[in-house]
Every structure is written in C-alpha cells, then in structure tokens.
Design a protein around this nucleic acid. Structure first.
Lengths: 157, 157
DNA sequence: TATTTAGTTCATAATTTGCAGAACTAAAGA
DNA sequence: TCTTTAGTTCTGCAAATTATGAACTAAATA
C-alpha cells in the first residue's frame, strides 16, 4: 500500500495550502508536509505515510520533518511497543505561535529603533512614523493577552 | 560622484535590515532598497542614487524598485521641470500596511475554512483549534481599528 | 546471528533565483 | 537633428536552493 488515501479535494487543498505556506517563506517540501497534517483525516501520520502520500523522497521527507520539528510547527508522539513516530501539526498551540510571531516583530522593532537613533532630527514626519511603528509593536505585544481574553469573552456569548 | 554618502553605521544598518526583510520573504535587492530608504538621511532618493549607493546594477535597481512600487512598500514624487522620480518609503502609511497584512491572513483563513469543512467530525480538539484560528483572525481584523484607537488614547497620556 | 524497521546522511542532479551587462527606448534639451 | 537623461528590457550566467537515490545506521525482532 502506498501512503494514505486522499480525496481529490484533499489533494487540491494540500497543494493550495502548500503554495500559501511557500509564499509565507516556507520551503516546498515542509509546506506540503505541514499541509498534509492539516488536511488528512488522521491527524497523526508516520514517516512512511508522509513521504509515500506526498510522493517525495525519504530524504526530502526527513529534512522537511526535522525542519518543522525544530521550528515547532509539528511534534510527534510515540506508542508503546512501537518504534514509529507519529507526527502531527501543533495547530492546537496556535496562541503560542502567534505570541512567538509577535516576538519576532519586536526584534525588527529593535532594529527600527537603531535606525531612528541615527536619523537626522529634521525629517520629522518620517521619524514620527518610525517611532509609531516601534511603539505600536510594543503595545501589541503587551496587549496580546487581553486581546485573547476579549475574544474568548465574545466567543462565549 | 557615486551615490550618496553613508556612515559606517548606516551601511551596517542597511545590511542588517536587509537581512531581516529577506527573512520576511523579500528578495535581496528590494530588501536593500527598502532599507536604504529608511536609513538614509534624505528620505527621497533618485534611481541613480539608489543603484550607485547600493552598488547594484541598474537592472537590479529597476526591478527592485518596480516590485516595491507594485507591493506599495514605496512610492515616488516628482518635481516640476525635473524628469527624475524621487523614491521614498511608505512607512508613514504603516497602519494601512498592517491592515493589508491582516487582510492577507484572512485569505489564509478562508483556506483553513475549506480544510475544516472537509474534515471528519471525530477529530474534535483539532477541528476546534482550526476553528479558533479562523475566528480569531476574523476577530483581529474587525478589532484592528479599535486597537489603533486604544493605542492612540494611551499615547496621549 | 541475520533481518527488518525507521529513519539519516551523502553525493550529486535538477531547478530556480537573482544579478550583471549591454542594448534599447522615449522624452527632453541643446 | 543630435545628445543627454532616466530609466527598461533582454539575454546569459553563477550561485543558491531543493530534491533524488543510494548507502548507511542503530535499535528491535526473528
């Protein structure tokens, strides 16, 4: 048996999502692995199921999976008396990932501050915008929890 | 004269920012052009100043500039009796750009909805997370203006 | 001890990307 | 009309990125 069975719709979705992830900066193979783990009926797939279903080489799958593991996009579980690893998307930790993305923006912010520090005082509007971006990013980072909270309150209703 | 003069700090900042933009998915030359327009004392630079300062070819500069123009990262102004275009960063429209980024996320959200629509009902927690991501993205999109507002109120104090 | 399993690593091979250089163009000026 | 200016467009190439297949490995099983 070669990989898992996907409907035509599922195959299309894997490719469409794959392209979206590529545009977001991810490589082709990792993008497709991640997509497959979102689209497949079974959310926990083995190494063999992944490369056989996506029709990519074992080495491409190995590299893709390890990249996704180190970037915390996926994780794996094991089962007693079974050497296989079952890989799954970490979508359930999406809040955590969003926080991390914002942390990345904070790093850009620090660079913007360095830029601002060395700018001539004369370009007032420009400098003010730069300062706005820096401050708003920091604000967003501080506010994230209360934004989550507000959303959860609204959701309950 | 070859391009504009940059201090060593400015040169370093152009490269550091350039790398950051590259990590965000932008190509090398557009990244450097965008960085230069943030770092240079003069916020409005001509085509010749850009390629000569960055030591890239005219074609690389032309392509980079046009890409940045079509993605609304930069704009240009002209001056009477002068055929040159003066390019500048659109950083002052950063709110608009943020709104657009969120709009892009909304597009991903639509795909996630397609994924969710075809998923088996049995993977409850997984599906719930997917739904959360979709709904939170929409929430954020709706809330953006009031988040801006809250930030501006806080800023005044 | 031999074999199978679940991957990993390595040496390329195949694309893809991004840039340079040169030729080109359209408008303005001399 | 010739030249200059302010770019654009068109190859061609070098480098970087990705993928492949085959050989390898370490643990478990027979």
């Amino acid at each position: 048996m070669e990989g898992i069975k996907l409907t035509d719709l599922q195959k299309t979705l894997v490719e469409k999502l794959g392209v979206v992830f590529e545009h977001a900066g991810s490589q082709p193979a990792p993008s497709r692995v991640l997509s497959l783990l979102l689209v497949a009926d079974n959310t926990e797939l083995t190494f063999d199921e992944i490369w056989q279903t996506l029709k990519i080489s074992k080495s491409a799958a190995s590299n893709a999976i390890n990249l996704l593991l180190t970037t915390n996009k996926i994780e794996y579980i094991t089962r007693t008396g079974n050497r296989k690893r079952y890989f799954r998307s970490r979508i359930t930790s999406w809040r955590e990932e969003m926080r991390n993305s914002l942390h990345g923006l904070l790093h850009v912010s620090k660079l913007y501050q360095e830029v601002l520090d060395q700018r001539p005082k004369s370009t007032k509007e420009f400098n003010a915008s730069l300062k706005d971006v820096i401050e708003f990013t920091e604000f967003l980072h501080q506010e994230l929890d209360s934004i989550f909270l507000k959303w959860e309150l609204r959701k309950k209703k």
